[in-house]
């Protein structure tokens, strides 16, 4: 699957499009995020709270749809595009 990062997340990673693979028959967004953080550990304290939850102000999208309700438990597949970004600030 492919991650897309925006704003300060992309700056911190030094990259805005990152392919990851997860060795699991039923992968979740959480598995994909772990794979991302394995390559870009500098994102970890930006993405997780002290309790290990996804920062509540971050948006998580799967193929352009917001999946913040199911969050890291959202099932994902190999050809998905996942996106992580802070609150939007257009206009």
């Amino acid at each position: 699957m492919r991650w897309k990062l925006f704003a300060d997340l992309a700056e911190r990673a030094g990259d805005d499009e990152i392919n990851v693979s997860v060795d699991d028959s039923e992968p979740t967004a959480g598995d994909a995020l772990d794979a991302l953080l394995a390559e870009y550990p500098q994102l970890a304290d930006r993405v997780f709270t002290a309790d290990g939850d996804l920062e509540s102000h971050l948006n998580l999208l799967r193929n352009g749809e917001n999946v913040s309700d199911t969050g890291l438990a959202t099932p994902v597949s190999d050809d998905d595009e996942l996106a992580l970004f802070p609150p939007v600030s257009g206009g």
Binding site: F6, V88, G90, G91
Partner: peptide, 13 residues
């Protein structure tokens, strides 16, 4: 414009 500012993934620096 209010909905654009709330809903559209655009980021300002």
């Amino acid at each position: 414009i209010n909905r654009l500012k709330d809903e559209v993934p655009i980021f300002k620096k």
